[in-house]
């Protein structure tokens, strides 16, 4: 069983919801990334989602776009990314998910990239521009390497399509909370809660459902937990903290923030 599913099973038996925390590799530096990872682990996050920057992140809002650009400007390459992953693996067994865009994998071939990622210690992949229709070769390569493929669904995904997506999904299903890109939102929409309930009905507990995009506060987390989410995903909020924090304080600030959120999932 994958590290991700094992984590979900363990949380389920404790009646806990998973907290998944996103940060961008290489933003604002490799050292800061590692400090943030330590902070996330210390704060009690369950799964870490590491972004690898892409030059054209169409699913991301201004905060993660900025982090992508900065990371690329600092010279973050795939080799640096895998070296960061290996360093994390020396310290922790926490499930690690890589979020990036299709071209990064396509460029090296799915098989080659995924096999390398798996060896470095990545457990699952999220590609926001990978549509189910185009995913055959990608899913095949992932299966071969024991890599989870975490697909996204949206509040406007119809049930027939949802079922098709679930078939190719492993690890967990990522439900996008809003019509829009990543980034802090001011309110939780009724359509999101309805979509979450519908998705849970369709998945019937076969695969955990995580909700992400726009989640940044303890209240947000509480609301999604009470609406039945198996995981809540927090991203841009972490980047915002890192943007305004000197490297030597990142670990403690991220830990404090994460702990507050994690408390709401228990």
């Amino acid at each position: 069983m994958s590290r991700i599913r094992e984590k979900f099973n363990q949380l389920k038996s404790n009646r806990e919801t998973a907290l998944i925390s996103y940060i961008m590799a290489g933003y604002p530096s490799e050292e800061a990334t590692l400090s943030a990872v330590r902070g996330l682990i210390k704060g009690g996050t369950d799964i870490i989602e590491l972004g690898f920057p892409f030059s054209d992140p169409i699913a991301d809002g201004p905060t993660i776009q900025m982090a992508s650009t900065e990371s690329l400007n600092k010279g973050t390459k795939i080799d640096n990314f895998f070296s960061i992953v290996k360093k994390i693996r020396k310290e922790s067994d926490i499930p690690l998910v890589l979020m990036t865009y299709t071209n990064i994998l396509y460029n090296q071939t799915y098989q080659k990239f995924i096999s390398r990622a798996k060896q470095a210690g990545i457990d699952g992949l999220i590609l926001p521009d990978m549509a189910i229709e185009e995913s055959k070769e990608y899913v095949k390569a992932a299966k071969k390497n024991g890599m989870d493929t975490i697909f996204l669904v949206s509040p406007n995904t119809e049930n027939d399509r949802l079922k098709k997506i679930i078939k190719s999904t492993s690890g967990f299903l990522y439900m996008v909370a809003v019509f829009g890109t990543t980034g802090v939102q001011t309110k939780i929409h009724k359509y999101t809660i309805d979509a979450l309930k519908n998705t849970k009905n369709v998945t019937k507990g076969k695969i955990p459902v995580g909700v992400g995009f726009g989640i940044s506060t303890e209240n947000d987390v509480k609301k999604y937990v009470s609406s039945g989410a198996d995981a809540v995903i927090v991203g841009s909020a972490n980047i915002k903290i890192m943007e305004n924090t000197p490297t030597n304080k990142i670990q403690s600030r991220i830990a404090t923030f994460t702990k507050k959120l994690k408390n709401k999932t228990q």
Binding site: P128, D129, A131, E133, F151, L152, T157, V176
Partner: peptide, 11 residues
């Protein structure tokens, strides 16, 4: 070609 798009755009 194909359609490599975020899921929100699929419908």
């Amino acid at each position: 070609g194909g359609k490599y798009i975020p899921e929100t755009l699929a419908p």
